[in-house]
Amino acid sequence: MTFRATNQARARVTPLRPVPAAPGREPLWRDLVGDVLRRERLAQGLRLKDVADVARISMAYLSEVERGRKEASSEVLAAAAQALGLSLADVLALAQGELIRLSGARSRSLGAGRAGHPGRPAGPGAGPMGDVRLAA
């Protein structure tokens, strides 16, 4: 194959980590949870293998969960959390905090906060269903 032919046949690159949510697009829960698990694992200086072994899940699957490529069951998330010395509630609360942070940044970038959005009640818990709570 010549240099010219190689140049013309460009490969399409797909990033392993999804691009951050664009304005108007909600972040995915699996990305948030995966980020929390990876951040906690790295903060503790643990290898992927260490956590996977203690959680009794495959290293490849845990890697995919951390990268937001797989939507893990609550059992898998609880096992990974326990392997990190956390509860499932801890992991979900950290992911919820990140979701709130990202949603707030997204609202500010769109120029409309909760109170400024037409048709949306102002203030936390003012919606028809009240506060959103995550149950583990």
Rank of each mutant, 00 (worst) to 15 (best):
R69Y: 04
A79I: 02
M129E: 14
P128R: 14
S63D: 09
R120K: 08
R56Q: 13
Y61F: 15
D53I: 05
A115W: 05
L94Q: 15
T6H: 14
G111V: 12
A55M: 03
G116Y: 02
R120W: 08
M129N: 13
V51L: 00
E66C: 02
V51A: 03
V51F: 00
V76A: 15
G104C: 04
D50I: 04
L110Q: 11
R17S: 11
A135D: 11
S109G: 06
L94D: 14
A83D: 02
A115K: 09
T6S: 14
A79E: 06
A112W: 07
A21L: 04
P20K: 05
P118N: 03
D50W: 05
A81N: 08
A43G: 08
L42A: 09
R25V: 15
A112P: 00
V76H: 14
G119T: 08
V13R: 11
R4Y: 04
E40G: 00
P121L: 11
G104V: 04
V65T: 03
A89L: 09
R12C: 02
S107V: 04
A136E: 10
Q8R: 10
W29P: 02
A122E: 15
K70E: 13
S58V: 05
N7Y: 10
A11L: 13
R114C: 05
T6I: 14
D50P: 02
M129L: 15
L16P: 12
T14H: 10
S107T: 07
V65C: 01
R114F: 03
V76P: 01
R10P: 04
R106I: 02
R120M: 12
A5M: 09
S109T: 12
M59S: 12
L86A: 05
A81T: 09
D50V: 03
R17M: 09
A95F: 07
P27W: 01
V33H: 05
R56L: 10
R4V: 06
R108Q: 14
R114A: 10
R69F: 05
A135E: 13
L46A: 01
R38D: 07
A122D: 14
A115C: 12
G104L: 08
G85L: 04
G127E: 11
L37H: 00
S58L: 04
D50A: 13
L32S: 07
E40A: 09
Y61S: 11
A22M: 11
Q8T: 11
R41I: 06
L16K: 12
P121W: 06
G113N: 13
G111P: 07
R47I: 05
E71P: 01
